[in-house]
Design a protein around this nucleic acid. Structure first.
Lengths: 364, 364
DNA sequence: GCCGATTGGTGTAACGATGCACGAATGTAA
DNA sequence: TTACATTCGTGCATCGTTACACCAATCGGC
């Protein structure tokens, strides 16, 4: 296990000083003789030299990496996002440090602290917590933070960047889709409405109802119990939510869920209760959110609201790569709200307004 | 944006030398006066000092991080694995650098090179390629590599560690389950059999057939076309595979798939073709592999072979943390093969040996 | 042939932590 | 009092790279 090739070895081989090699490597080669350049380049190739990221980072203070904090990559939505982010990052030569917060603010803080200690000065955080105060201290020290899936809030510090889908519109699209199918009793299934994105989606749901002249009914909104962390449990929460709604004296004929995992859980419960998805008379329409990889493969293929993941990942990384420059102190906060898209598949269908005269399936 | 607190600031505040602080931090405090310790500890707390990982790594050459290379975290199986790994790593204070290889050996090499340049000396790689030669150069330079999902091969270098489920047994369990249900024409759907794990699973399938006295039929094995990379396409490949098998003059009554994503894709195609899953007369039984989060939620809940992900993640990290020590030159290679577990759910059912006298569903 | 500019590179001090080889105090024995 | 241990820390070189300040040549102009 021999010693690594250092910049000095290259310098020696090319008969120049280490500074000169460094100058070339860092584009300060304006007035460098082509011959010299060639000698250095050749030496680099021959020795197989690769600059040490660590030494470079220590010297410049700039890490070629950033943190990605998501609730849990075990959730396909976050997994896809992580992949998209990593893919864009790689194109820039950046590495991605992965952290699973399990939606726990304390863990988020600990992770970001740890990243900071590691010299990481930029983090994309897939959190949507109402407050990001737990990260304020580091932001004041210069941390560049990009919030994903959390629309910019008035009280946010100006140096917090944001990328998110238009959640209000998303909630609205999902609901309007069901309304257009003639549904009037539409449920809403979510975990605790403790994040900006959930608030907005719920608001979209209400807005759509209101616009259609359908009264909002509190009992049709299931918002979980307690503050269940963990994204693996999404489907489980979907089950519970559906169970609760089905227990209602007058259950809904359709539901909007907070994301596809919830939708899948909800479907499972509904099926177990003997309901068809979708069902004309004895069944339910379900719409999800996110359009995860599995949504089109599900049985039935899931109607859902798609988030433009790749665009969002790209934007997040652009935001993070905006110069550490302190010049943009009083600039406009960086923020984007991307358009969601309703993807109509087979988990939703028209509501039958009249009871069938002779349908054996509705008999029971 | 003020300067970071360094070890020197602490030293000054505690009226000792930086060396002393370092000594305490690194457990060389055997003969240190308790008073001194206390002073230092206090200074650390008061200043909120955190050692710089970068500086430490430059000096010691030991990174507090390792690489995790998987085909794609967008695939729920790898997402879950990544989460498990990250979770164990965090308990040790290690950070995880995420890389998506898309199953491309060249990308694998580039990633590992990049990690190495970043001072990372240990990598868990979720690859199962037959040969790991593209990583040999770095292994010879001292890279500690743990192969996940790839059983140890005779020709592997001794310092390559391995963790894997017993794929032979897994394939066997899946097949035996179907055999026990009376199926005799059992298909096998996989992408290119270009990995150790796939070879082994296929071998398990054959072994089970043989043991049951069922002849192996080449046409029932669909092994994809070309070397389609990318794990997002798993489901798509599952679709194609199923389509191909259904086109057979005499299609199978059940299929074993290479993983759950394939299974889900396969089910989608079968359903589109009007087949029930599972189906007694005009339908198919399907068994998957991995037991991803969504397997139990699928419709029908998927019968599959579970991999003990958490145990495997733990083992992988233990293997990686085995001292960089060169002492274990001629030690036994580190390697584990974990037991798979068949999880019987609803996507499989008994094969009807006699055609029903009067089944309207089989009419068409 | 002398002066000032330009060209083409080099010297050096960091970045923040580590760990070996010392050494200043203090204690202990003869 | 001298000699020798032991205790408790410290000095210093170092990891590999960077970037500022500096300088040795070469050149053009008159």
């Amino acid at each position: 296990m021999k010693r690594e090739v250092t910049i000095r070895d290259v310098a020696q081989a090319a008969r120049v000083s280490p500074s000169t090699v460094s100058n070339l490597l860092n584009g300060r080669d304006g007035r460098m003789r082509p011959r010299t350049k060639a000698r250095i380049t050749r030496a680099i190739d021959e020795l197989g030299y690769r600059p040490s990221r660590v030494a470079r980072q220590l010297r410049t203070g700039q890490a070629q990496a950033f943190g990605l904090v998501v609730p849990s990559v075990a959730n396909p939505f976050w997994g896809s996002f992580a992949r998209a982010v990593e893919s864009v990052a790689m194109r820039h030569g950046d590495q991605v440090l992965l952290c699973n917060s399990e939606r726990d603010p304390e863990r988020e803080r600990a992770y970001v602290d740890e990243l900071w200690a590691g010299g990481i000065r930029a983090v994309i955080i897939g959190t949507s917590l109402l407050s990001l105060d737990h990260l304020r201290p580091l932001m004041e020290r210069g941390l560049r933070l990009v919030a994903f899936d959390r629309e910019r809030q008035p009280a946010d510090p100006p140096n917090l960047a944001s990328v998110s889908v238009d959640n209000l519109l998303g909630g609205q699209l999902a609901t309007e889709h069901l309304l257009a199918f003639g549904h009037r009793r539409i449920g809403f299934i979510s975990g605790a409405i403790a994040t900006v994105s959930r608030q907005r989606r719920l608001a979209g749901y209400r807005a759509a109802l209101e616009r259609a002249g359908v009264p909002f009914r509190d009992e049709l909104v299931w918002a979980g119990e307690g503050n269940g962390y963990g994204d693996i449990d999404s489907a489980e929460l979907g089950r519970q939510g559906m169970a609760a709604l089905l227990d209602l004296p007058e259950p809904p004929s359709a539901v909007v869920t907070i994301n596809d995992m919830y939708a899948i859980g909800a479907c499972a419960t509904a099926r177990a209760a003997g309901l068809a998805i979708p069902g004309e008379h004895h069944g339910l329409s379900v719409v999800g959110f996110d359009d995860i990889v599995l949504a089109p493969l599900f049985n039935p293929p899931l109607t859902t609201v798609r988030q433009p993941l790749d665009d969002m990942a790209r934007f997040a990384i652009e935001a993070i790569r905006r110069d550490t420059g302190d010049e943009n102190e009083d600039e406009q906060p960086i923020s984007a709200v991307m358009p969601p898209q309703l993807v109509a598949r087979a988990s939703t269908a028209a509501f039958a307004t009249t009871l069938p005269a002779n349908d054996h399936r509705s008999a029971h």
